[in-house]
Nucleic acid binder design. Structure first.
Lengths: 221, 221
DNA sequence: TGACCGAGAATGATCGCTCGCATAAATTGA
DNA sequence: TCAATTTATGCGAGCGATCATTCTCGGTCA
């Protein structure tokens, strides 16, 4: 799995290139990220409840005593991973909102997500989160909030297009949006690109679905 | 969760109505089903690894010693639940194959599945299985075999319609079928009907997707 | 009578997590 | 500038709880 190492790489560069020692805060951030990456690897491989703290410690080359300086519990690690994923998604959606053509915007949003899940091998991890969300109160809260937020953004984006007369949706957006989200999720979470369906074909499918649901009127230039 | 109690009800009827005692084999089948139902309840609530054998025993009103007379391990219970679900799906698909109009057949197949997941609250359990399939070798094998089987049936069903010239699919069925399966799975596993999208609207969405993917030519009477 | 069944305590392993202690880094005082 | 002191960090044995599973033994049918 690829990891979100941007910050860490910057920090390591600082240490290597400038020869300067890391500040306490920088070191701390580095350790936190190390734990998160190790946890993601273990969770994807063993599941949430299947991955033991000992395994995570081993993966992070760290003792339990050290790890617990950074996270108060296993649950806290899970929650932080959720929160980070949520921040990622918000960035992607913000980019979608800049697209003029609403069908292209939706296809872009969907494909960005699908490509991300494929490229980071996030499939297994997502399955674990989905399962955990049906079980743990705190994870479910995070998950549902995130879904509601994404739904809100789509509603706003499509609502504006509807007001401009660019689309004639199959029916009310309030029910269409959850349906479209489920469809995109189905494609992403099954990692279609890894199952013999090339990315450009996936995009054709997504665009076909969007067009048939939104029925663009061609009023946009 | 509603349970597949057909056989049990028959057995209980036999005991109550006819006043006859159950044979050993009948009693055994009854106990096995009791364990499976208890396990499904616990797995859906706590997850696979989260549900303890003690909890399953309590749910089934049975001691560990008794339970282990019927299943050699926790894993064996999981596998039997998978196998039963697989048998269920096969029945539904067989019914689909009897439908003449291929679009209606696909909609029927999809909606049967979606309705089943909704009515039996199988959502949580499915999420747990999906997660476990990324983890456990034996569960993954069962899951993948099942997927491949379903894919084969769809391919055969749609292939025949293609040969008859009833559809002009978006592209080759080998890639279209997995895409359609992912989409149906996304809708079912999110339990759209429980999230404010009425069943008839779900059906409209499914039919719209099918039509836009398969593009029926209207050659069928 | 003999095969089967059920109960529930017991088993060793493993769980998430804590604690005491050593070391390293930052801060202070002169 | 450099001990002295405080603070942060790391280690890993060890804690009580809980895990899946087994064992023993007494009861129940055919």
């Amino acid at each position: 799995m690829k990891t979100a190492l941007g910050n860490i790489e910057m920090l390591l560069e600082a240490e290597i290139d400038e020869g300067r020692a890391l500040s306490r805060a920088e070191r701390r951030e580095l350790q936190v990220q190390r734990i998160l990456d190790a946890a993601k690897t273990c969770f994807a491989r063993e599941g949430f409840q299947g991955a033991s703290m000992q395994q995570i410690c081993a993966e992070a080359s760290m003792s339990p005593g050290a790890l617990y300086r950074y996270f108060v519990s296993k649950e806290a690690i899970i929650e932080e991973i959720c929160a980070a994923a949520r921040r990622d998604d918000e960035e992607k959606l913000a980019e979608m909102l800049t697209k003029r053509d609403v069908v292209e915007g939706m296809v872009f949003g969907a494909m960005t997500h699908i490509r991300f899940v494929h490229e980071t091998d996030a499939c297994a991890l997502i399955a674990q989160f989905h399962a955990e969300a049906t079980r743990s109160e705190s994870v479910r809260a995070i998950y549902c909030n995130h879904l509601a937020e994404v739904r809100g953004i789509f509603l706003q984006y499509l609502g504006a297009a509807l007001d401009r007369g660019e689309i004639e949706p199959l029916f009310e957006l309030e029910t269409l949006v959850p349906a479209m989200m489920s469809i995109i999720q189905g494609i992403a979470n099954n990692d279609l690109p890894a199952n013999g369906v090339a990315l450009d074909k996936v995009e054709t499918v997504v665009r076909t679905v969007m067009v048939s649901m939104l029925r663009p009127t061609g009023k946009a230039a």
